[in-house]
Design a protein around this nucleic acid. Structure first.
Lengths: 110, 110
DNA sequence: TCCATATTTCCAGAATAATGGAAATATTGT
DNA sequence: ACAATATTTCCATTATTCTGGAAATATGGA
């Protein structure tokens, strides 16, 4: 993963409203939830919600799928996983460090 | 971990210069590196470096230790680990999702 | 003490991000 | 086509963050 990509993902999550949205979607799994309901659940006004959903989607952390008149948003676990792997990469210079092993770490012998 | 804490950690990492500093320190392990050398290695002017080091330290991602006239900074792997666990927590609502298992996940049966 | 170097603080300008009301644009059911 | 509801865009205001020069402050060595 490029450093710039990582910064984009981290910046997308480094905001209280967006982190709340993302975590709400993470728990719901692949089915997700439509924008309106997300706004209701977290008490976010439409314009603000739209802004943050776009940010998350642009970062690739969530994806949208049209379903009738609704747009369902769901978490993209791939992006999440790649970010975790990136953050744990080369942790402690290869020594034991107590971090949850990332996929890269496992193979490298972290 | 509190959501606010997570936002603080994520915000600290969601900046190109700081992410570079942190990753530089992560590879070096517990010994770390003094501020001056960090600035040289990454070509960051003193004032800017100081600003970012303070941000990272305030978030708890790095720690400082005085050694003679130098101040050595090193990564705090505990904080990193907690953040990873927080992000992976409740991933996919407990279903298999391909995320590197966090410590919480392992016990809960993710 | 005086010097050299490390590090931080001060400060102000520049850049970027967040907010939400109002209006515009979908989309489906009737 | 019309009504009802979902969602986005427009836009201006406000808030926050980033940057780095210059000066101040620390620390140890000569």
């Amino acid at each position: 993963m490029e450093t710039k990509t990582a910064v984009t993902l981290l910046a997308a999550l480094a905001q209280e409203t967006r982190l709340a949205i993302f975590r709400h979607l993470v728990v719901l799994g692949p089915q997700g939830l439509n924008a309106c309901k997300i706004g209701e659940a977290l008490a976010i006004p439409p314009a603000t919600l739209s802004f943050h959903l776009k940010e998350l989607a642009h970062a690739g952390l969530i994806k949208a799928r049209q379903e009738g008149r609704f747009i369902f948003y769901s978490a993209r676990f791939e992006a999440m996983g790649e970010l975790l792997a990136f953050l744990a990469h080369d942790c402690c210079g290869g020594r034991e460090c107590g971090l949850p092993a990332s996929s890269e770490c496992k193979e490298g012998g972290c």
